[in-house]
Design a protein around this nucleic acid. Structure first.
Length: 573
RNA sequence: CGGGGUGUGGCGCAGUCUGGCAGCGCACUUGCUUUGGGAGCAAGGAGUCGGAGGUUCAAAUCCUCUCACCCCGACCA
């Protein structure tokens, strides 16, 4: 492709709409433009990246035995009402009415649709197993779209759905997808980690996420790794074992109210009472589906909302507004404690707290705390469970290694759905004995538009993008420093024709721009290999080859460029 | 939804407090010069100042309402 014949609107200045480096580079490099919050136009370069990545995804999915279909973006609401998710997915689901006033939704995922499809058609175990996938636009009306393609409202996703007769068969299908995912990301130049994750609104038994680890702030999720074994889980899910629990008193002491003037935060209370935060227990008030609930965790820990939500079996959970806190504690915010809370209010106590003795809690009274409090003697727990974020440095749940935190970007996920959808929607088959059984299902996603941005977040330098070659929009960029000059033009055209004839994707910068502009744009858009045509080398009948990722310049004879290009491309990631 | 902020040529911004000719840089067009890391000079095109209403002799600027977008939080199949 010639630069002057395509559309690559690079920008010299930064755009104010982008926070993340990858988002900024995609905008400046002329890959994307925003139409509305979280809704983007893919320009020619992005279109090519999407095509390249999609092709890899298709090839590997097909290789694994999955079959491609395409399902609609617009769905009748009834199908979602059947599975019950119409009431649980929340406002992310975009809803609208058609001209007949029928309730419709925009698909944010397709479990319901694929189950609807197969329940009428797949009736025998002989037709199983089956894996259907599609590469399709999804729409999720995110509360707060941000980070460009990373959290858009409209995006492209590869989603696959497996149908199996039993657990064993399902595990084979699941493992095939996991293998395919590693193959896909590897081909795209991305080293990913498979981590355990919460199943969220998807439901089902277990789930994994495929994470690209990044050093930048582009990481959207914290992942806990074991430094010894291969345990890895995202922070929502990660568990741990405590290495050195603080010492516990032998005797249970008498509880006592103490005045704590102007001390409502953990820092203030620890400073005032001159104790360690590990002696304090925070009582946090949340609204679980609108009803108040208390969570008790050690003073130095972070509450894990996902874990708490799962404990409470809630669909929606949010921190209680001050008015609610004041109502249940009968005192100003900052002094909540477990004693004398309303009787019907659930109190979830963290594992660690259940092992503590004589700890300090809020007094449910202004500027008052209570010391030497003990579980069971002084208050009751509705449940004792792990409800905190696994802290870095604590022990791995599976071995004696230590947990390490890293930032990651989720590029794929796999869910073990079990029979959640097949049962609720009556999707059943007859087994060999003639018994009716629901399908065992799995669902598997890959972000087709977010993965390339994740790649940019991972592979860039101060001048621009450094695309992994298999998802780069072009493999080679030919830069004649002065295209108006006959010798430059002639050499450029000759090389261009030769590469094109050999099916090497190649971009010819035929603009009447100065060298500096071309170099800077080339750095920005990140084509893996660059051929520079200028007087210096041309005098000796040569051109210069340079990889985007390195400094090394290779000289090649004009007649020998194809071989040199092929050789260099072999060596590039 | 709560808190904070921004809307002025394609992009980035100044001007708003204290009402008085709509400006700057980049980009764009034309010409000449230049040509190995974002050229110089000259000329030029382009803006209902987010929208509606109001105050005023006069509104980008003040008042009311409204829309959009961004940041923090909750959320994220």
């Amino acid at each position: 492709m010639r630069w002057t014949q395509t559309y690559i609107p690079t920008l010299r200045e930064q755009s104010s709409e982008a926070e993340l480096i990858s988002h900024q580079l995609l905008l400046r490099g002329g890959f994307i433009r925003k139409l509305a919050a979280g809704i983007y136009i893919y320009l020619p370069l992005m279109q090519r990246v999407i095509e390249k990545f999609s092709r890899i995804v298709r090839e590997e999915m097909n290789k694994s035995g999955a079959i491609e279909i395409t399902m609609p973006v617009l769905h009748p609401a009834e199908v979602w009402q059947e599975s019950g998710r119409y009431d649980t997915v929340g406002k992310e689901q975009m809803r609208l009415k058609d001209r007949h006033l029928h309730e419709m939704v925009l698909g944010g995922t397709h479990e319901e649709i694929v189950t609807y499809l197969l329940r009428g058609e797949l009736k025998s175990y002989r037709q199983l197993p089956l894996n259907l996938y599609q590469i399709q636009v999804k729409f999720r009306d995110e509360i707060r779209p941000r980070f460009g393609l990373m959290r858009g409202r409209e995006f492209i996703m590869k989603d696959a759905y497996t149908f199996d007769t039993d657990e064993d068969s399902f595990m084979v299908a699941y493992q095939k997808m996991v293998d395919a995912y590693f193959a896909i990301f590897k081909r795209a130049g991305l080293d990913t980690k498979k981590v355990e994750s919460d199943t969220g609104a998807m439901g089902g038994k277990a789930a994994h996420e495929f994470m690209l680890i990044v050093d930048t702030e582009g990481g959207e999720e914290v992942i806990m790794f074991c430094d010894k074994c291969d345990y890895a889980a995202n922070i929502e899910k990660a568990t741990f074992r405590e290495i050195n629990p603080p010492e516990v008193d032998n005797e249970v002491l008498e509880k006592k109210e103490v005045d704590t003037p102007n001390a409502s935060t953990i820092e203030e209370v620890t400073a005032f009472l001159k104790v360690d935060a590990t002696r304090l227990v925070k009582t946090l008030i949340y609204l679980a589906d609108g009803k108040p609930a208390a969570a008790m965790i050690r003073g130095d820990r972070n509450l894990n909302l996902t874990k708490l939500k799962n404990q409470l079996n809630a669909i929606e959970i949010e921190s209680a507004p001050p008015a609610v806190v004041e109502d249940v504690t009968q005192c100003p915010v900052g002094y909540a404690g477990p004693i004398e809370l309303p009787k019907d209010m659930p109190i979830i106590v963290d594992n660690e707290v259940s092992k503590m003795k004589n700890f300090i809690v809020g007094g449910n009274k202004k500027e008052t705390h209570i010391i030497n409090v003990n579980l069971d003697r002084d208050f009751r727990a509705t449940a004792v469970a792990d409800i905190i974020d696994a802290p870095e440095g604590e022990m791995c749940p599976h071995c004696d290694g230590r947990l390490v935190a890293k930032q990651g970007i989720e590029v794929g996920n796999t869910f073990m759905l079990g029979t959640k959808y097949s049962e609720s929607m009556g999707a059943k088959f007859l087994d060999a004995e003639g018994n009716e059984k629901p399908f065992i299902m799995g669902s598997y996603g890959i972000g087709i538009t977010r993965t390339p941005q994740a790649a940019v977040e991972r592979y860039h330098d101060e001048k621009g993008i450094v695309w992994p070659k298999n998802i780069a929009p072009y493999l080679v960029e030919i830069i004649p420093l002065n295209y108006e000059k006959d010798e430059h033009k002639k050499a450029a055209e000759q090389i261009y024709a030769e590469l094109v004839n050999n099916n090497i994707d190649c971009l010819l910068d035929d603009r009447p721009e100065r060298a500096g502009v071309k170099f800077n744009d080339a750095d920005l858009i990140g084509i893996p290999l660059r051929i520079i045509i200028g007087d210096r080398a041309l005098k000796q009948g040569k051109v210069e080859l340079k990889a985007r990722g390195g400094d090394e310049v290779v000289m090649a004879d004009l007649g020998d460029v194809l071989t040199a290009v092929k050789g260099l491309l072999e060596r590039i990631n």
